[in-house]
């Protein structure tokens, strides 16, 4: 029996592909971007394991380190680039609420390829960075979670919403207009919650506290939570000037909702070289 287990272990090791790790993020070429984190095409991209550090430069800081490392793979189809981020997090936190934060991750890339890099922490004035940000609650919305309070609190009892009452007809222009009066963030186009078509957003920053929606870069994503943690694919337009065998840089950030991480309270990497392989 002991020998059988040993032989099985050898066979298993021989069958699984060894994880190729590299000391930079290498974007390999493929005809199609694999948006499913479980797509076997990701096996063709070498893994870069990045150690993470707490954001401890600006207040509020993350004083207790959480996510230790993130495994990054990258694939490009020549027009877009996708990253798959994997990190350990046994809890899936995708329900927002008072004192309830959600899991999230982000990829940051300098807007321009320059010799002098922007500050790794959200860039700096005159050296803007592009951030593609994914959130677990947005993923849940894309996966079909509804836009009612019962989708967040299943046992909620609702007496009355003035904007869903007679004589307003459901779905009418008048009804939608009145509903917006009670959702000022949505009325201003700040879609932090509610219906979404993609679980990511395109952002730009020129330093801590300056994050703001940026020019659309066609960002998309898909995240799946497994037994040990998250596997998230984030895609966006290929960074400007990132020709084959050219280098740019990328930095990554992870938020664990269970640890009350949001905004500046995050684990992050410094700049990591990003190389585009292939022709």
């Amino acid at each position: 029996m002991k020998y059988a287990v040993f032989i099985l272990a050898i066979i298993s090791a021989a069958c699984s592909r060894p994880q190729k790790t590299v000391n930079e993020v290498v974007a390999v070429s493929a005809a199609k971007l694999p948006m499913d984190p479980a797509d076997r095409a990701w096996d063709n991209a070498p893994a870069h394991i990045a150690r993470m550090i707490p954001q401890d430069l600006v207040e509020p800081r993350l004083m207790t380190p959480s996510t230790q490392q993130v495994t990054i793979r990258s694939i490009t189809n020549g027009a877009e680039i996708a990253f798959r981020l994997e990190w350990e997090d046994p809890d899936s936190n995708d329900l927002p609420g008072p004192a309830k934060m959600v899991d999230a991750c982000a990829v940051q890339i300098p807007e321009k390829i320059e010799k002098d890099l922007p500050e790794p922490q959200m860039g700096q004035e005159g050296k803007r960075v592009q951030v593609t940000y994914w959130r677990a609650d947005w993923q849940a919305a894309v996966n079909g979670r509804g836009d009612t309070i019962r989708d967040i609190y299943p046992n909620a009892s609702i007496d009355h919403y003035p904007f869903e009452s007679k004589p307003l007809e459901p779905g009418s222009g008048e009804q939608k207009e009145m509903a917006m009066l009670y959702a000022p963030a949505r009325a201003l186009g700040n879609i932090r919650g509610g219906p979404r078509t993609v679980p990511v957003e395109d952002l730009v920053a020129t330093g801590p506290g300056t994050l703001t929606p940026g020019p659309p870069l066609g960002a998309n994503g898909r995240g799946v939570h497994g037994k040990t943690g998250w596997s998230v694919v984030i895609s966006r337009r290929l960074p400007e000037g990132l020709a084959p065998n050219q280098r740019s840089h990328a930095a990554f950030a992870i938020w664990q909702g269970a640890k009350q991480e949001a905004g500046a309270r995050k684990m992050r990497t410094g700049w990591i070289p990003l190389v585009r392989r292939g022709s």
Partner: peptide, 28 residues
């Protein structure tokens, strides 16, 4: 500023009178 808030809830944490509230539907 409902156009700028990203729902980090730092204000909820900071206000000692607890007069800022997080809206889970709008995320702000």
């Amino acid at each position: 500023d409902q156009g700028r808030c990203r729902g980090y809830q730092e204000c909820v944490r900071g206000c000692p009178y607890k007069k800022v509230f997080f809206n889970p539907m709008t995320g702000t």
